[in-house]
Design a protein around this nucleic acid. Sequence first.
DNA 1: CATAAGGAATACC
DNA 2: GGTATTCCTTATG
Length: 336
Amino acid sequence: MGSPGCDRVGSTVPLPLMSFNDYPYSVSGLRAWEEEDTKPPRGLISVPKHTAPERSLQGVFLPCSDMLLTEDSLWLLKKKEAAPLEPPCKPLEQCPVIDSQGLGVGLGLEVPSGLEGQVEERCLEQVQSIVLGEVMKDIETACKLLNITSEPMEWNCGNVQKWLLWTEHLYRLPQVGKVFQELSGKDLCSMTEEDFRQRSMQCGDLLFAHLDIWRSAACMKECCTPGDTKLHSAEETCPEADSSCSSQPIHLWQFLRQLLLKPHNYGRCIRWLNKEKGIFKIENSAYVARLWGLRKNRPAMNYDKLSRSIRQYYKKGIIRKPDVSQRLVYQFVHPV
DNA sequence: CATAAGGAATACC
DNA sequence: GGTATTCCTTATG
């Protein structure tokens, strides 16, 4: 991300980020660990409540996987936050264009002029490209885990259901798959936000927003990576994926690895205890099993069966129990 | 009661 | 034929 091409495209492709407050990709981790009253996953920037404003600026404190915002950026944003008489943040529907200015507007910040302004603008651009990069990576990961294409227009009914289930699981939305039954991706994309809301009062708008993000991301991906540069970008967004990236049959151990690579999304259900040694813990066995079942189209999957598959790896030397055996803790024999 | 280990049959590519 | 799934028994804490 952040290539000149992308910037150019970014100024023309609308990315309806909603307000950052509502942006689940950035706040989901926060929400998750708050709910479960556990420690925040690593990489999550937590701020004291009083420094987190009600408006969309909050979204900047996002748990970008392993990436942290620079101190400078945070300081800058806090400084802007503290500035009095700022115009209230416009809802993002009113500023859906994601470019350096768009982000500033979306954050309720005005981009000042002069040298200082240029510095701040560059800062914001950095933040923006970090956020965008994370969004794209999250979507890539989800696609790999679900074995679907990132372009919603190409989804069949099964893909749509998978995406719905996944999104529901990930963001703990009520299950609404039924009301979207027998809809293809094309159908879904032709629906308005109102259509979504009519089908689900509770979370239609959220699902619509999610879909919009996916569509925009697919659009950006298309524009940013024309032709043969696509391969390079794919490697960049999923460096460890290599052969496993080519979808279709995925092994359980690869799936687990992919979940572990995204601590801000899946850290609440599976996480490293010791990444160097390849030791990981399944924090929520039922949840991981559900995700695995989703990926393999095995609705009856449960931890009993999943763990049986893991145990098959003992003989093959792929996964083993760590020296000091603990419940739900396993170890990759060959850590990355 | 949830997890662990592993045998055995079966399904799927 | 390799891998995963399903079902099962037994053990452990």
